[in-house]
Amino acid sequence: MEGIVGYGAYIPRNRIKVEEIAKVWGADAPSYKKGLMLEEKSVPSPDQDVITMSVEAGRYAVKRAGVDPKEIGAIYIGSESHPYAVKPSGTVVAEALGATPDIHCADYEFACKAGSEGMFVCFGLVRAGLIKYGMGIGADTSQGAPGDALEYSASAGAAAFLFGNDGVIATVDATHSYMTDTPDFWRREYQNYPRHGGRFTGEPAYFKHTLGAARAILEKTGLTAKDFRWATFHQPNGKFPLRAGKILGFDKEQLEQGWLVPRLGNTYSGASPIGLTAILDVAEPGERILMVSYGSGAGSDAFVFTVTERIKEVQDLAPKTRDQLDNNKRYLEYGEYAKFRGKIRKIEE
């Protein structure tokens, strides 16, 4: 049966705390920390972007899968911060992994849902028998305008999943996608930062689509929250995924392992995929996992996975997600963060 054969996550080591951002803008840090349930977020170094993080996550996925990269038939990278406006990220990643030239590549965009789109398409191509292995990657160096509420959460990270039907560590039991035209968050051409609809991003956007996809896949499979050991939802802040899980009947213990946002921030296209990697790091054979992404604009992809015996052989073959989150951190002051994120206007050389 088709499923995930390898996975990997990459999180940069730089962090900035909510207090450090709030201090600059005269904002009340405790209310942001309580209201959004955020403590700190990851920040990419100046020499890191979607391509570099995708390569690292992809290498970990190949290492865990133990396959020849030449057998990868497709690489799809979902992001809203591809380094080039015109030139694919996927070709660089495929070349770095050693998967070229007999491969199909595309860069996807669907706000924060672009990573799960890549996963969905790779799974479909494997199931159709068109490719042997396919890699779906969700990665972002998320943008948040200075002083905007998004600046407290927009962070960086990547997750890669290699799909196949040989050596599966988690079968894909069902998928469901749910989407409508809902303008809750967008970024126009040539704009550096996204705009959003404030409270409109909640009920008619995140909750309608996340819950819509989740309820549909539960109905399709005849499962309830009690049938799952783990669940992870898109995590734009700390509160939304916990509330979505609670509405669906999941308890905090089922959600906590994949709930990384308080100390990782919102990695946009990487958010629920990185949550899934953290779950796979500790999952036991036979456990069932629900993953539901969300992308503004708007839509959700839902997946039901069941972990296989092989998971125990691969968990220690590459760095684990929570180890990257908890260790080797370097805290930035706002000035250095602003330089790293290109927020300081300089003289052009």
């Binding site: 170094s45 100046p46 020499d47 890191q48 972007d49 391509i51 570099t52 390569v55 690292e56 290498r59 380094p83 770095a96 050389e349």
Partner: peptide, 9 residues
């Protein structure tokens, strides 16, 4: 690690 080495302007 794989990193961006430089940008041509």
């Amino acid at each position: 690690e794989f990193r961006k080495v430089q940008e041509a302007g």
